[in-house]
């Protein structure tokens, strides 16, 4: 086992690495290339360099090697060995003390500031490594940067995208009066309560028919077609198990009752829709709507 925190303390203890001299002095051709690549059309950079370019001057080049005392390189090696093999830059803050003039020759020093972890991230478990670099012209500090990377173990399998929200989706409560409906969706049937006495169709269902008083409800299986009677496009706040914005439509089924469901498509009042079933787990299958394929 590698003691990452101990190794980090050892590297941090070494302080700043020896100054590394830039390959070239600050020069106009490189400034012009950089401005063009970034899309900066400011005409003022003829004798001074854009401050945000500071890191460019001391980049290692295509076949550059880190110096032996480079603390970021040393820390990366420690984490690689511990199994944190992937890296992603997360953020950097730069401070510029003055403009750099054409002809000035920079050097850079770097120290390890902080290593924190292990943290669970969306990418996998990892350590945040923060370094601090200073650019010099002679013995004058002209710019500084705090730079943070995440060095992580890639998660074994990427999380299935839809699974996480579904796990927290709001579930219906089910009782004796409503069980037939959810049993239906599990079988791919959209069931509408039908009174065993007078035949009244009713949704949402209930135990006693308001027309005839019978308490023997049955059901019919809907054809699953209807039109949008009204709808909502939900933006705020977040809803468990949903990704905003999403549409909820009140659909008038061809059989005559109305029913709510999420609508996957561009909504409008009167839009012909058909039912879709989405299995959440063995217990729950949700009905929702999509525009009718045959229209």
């Amino acid at each position: 086992m590698i003691d990452i925190e101990k190794e980090a303390a050892r590297i941090a203890e070494q302080g700043e690495c020896a100054p590394r001299l830039a390959r070239d002095p600050v020069n106009l051709p490189m400034i012009n290339n950089w401005l063009e690549a970034i899309g900066d059309e400011h005409p003022g950079y003829t004798e001074v360099a854009p401050p945000a370019m500071v890191q460019v001057w001391t980049m290692g080049g295509l076949r550059g090697q880190r110096s032996a005392d480079d603390p970021l390189g040393a820390m990366m090696a420690v984490l690689d060995e511990a199994g944190y093999t992937s890296v992603v830059a997360t953020n950097s803050d730069q401070t510029y003390h003055r403009y750099l003039e054409v002809g000035e020759h920079l050097s850079v020093t770097t120290s390890l500031e902080d290593v924190t972890g292990p943290k669970r991230t969306g990418l996998g478990e990892g350590w945040f490594v923060t370094t601090r670099s200073t650019w010099w012209v002679g013995d004058e500090a002209v710019a500084e940067m705090r730079f943070r990377v995440l060095k992580y173990k890639p998660a074994q399998k990427p999380e299935p995208k839809r699974e996480a929200p579904r796990a927290q989706a709001i579930r219906p409560s089910v009782n004796r009066d409503t069980e037939y409906f959810w049993e239906g969706t599990r079988r791919g049937e959209l069931r509408i309560q039908r009174c065993g006495g007078c035949g009244l169709l009713r949704h949402p269902p209930g135990p006693m028919c308001p027309e005839c008083g019978a308490t023997k409800p049955k059901y019919l299986v809907s054809e699953g077609y209807g039109v949008v009677y009204s709808y909502v496009v939900h933006h705020h706040p977040q809803v468990p198990g949903k990704q905003t914005p999403f549409v909820v439509a009140l659909v008038e089924l061809d059989e005559g009752v109305r029913m709510l469901g999420e609508l996957d498509g561009e909504p409008s009042v009167g839009l012909p829709v058909e039912v879709v079933f989405t299995k959440v787990d063995d217990e729950l299958t949700m009905p929702s709507w999509r525009p009718r394929a045959d229209r």
Binding site: D177, M259, L260
Partner: peptide
């Protein structure tokens, strides 16, 4: 609130805030 059986026809479908419930009336 989804534990209420009446709400089982709206909350699980994503209709879970007073604003959204009123919006359904407003659209019509």
């Amino acid at each position: 609130a989804a534990a209420n059986i009446d709400n089982s026809w709206s909350y699980p479908m994503g209709l879970g805030t007073p604003a959204a419930m009123v919006a359904m009336f407003a659209r019509r």
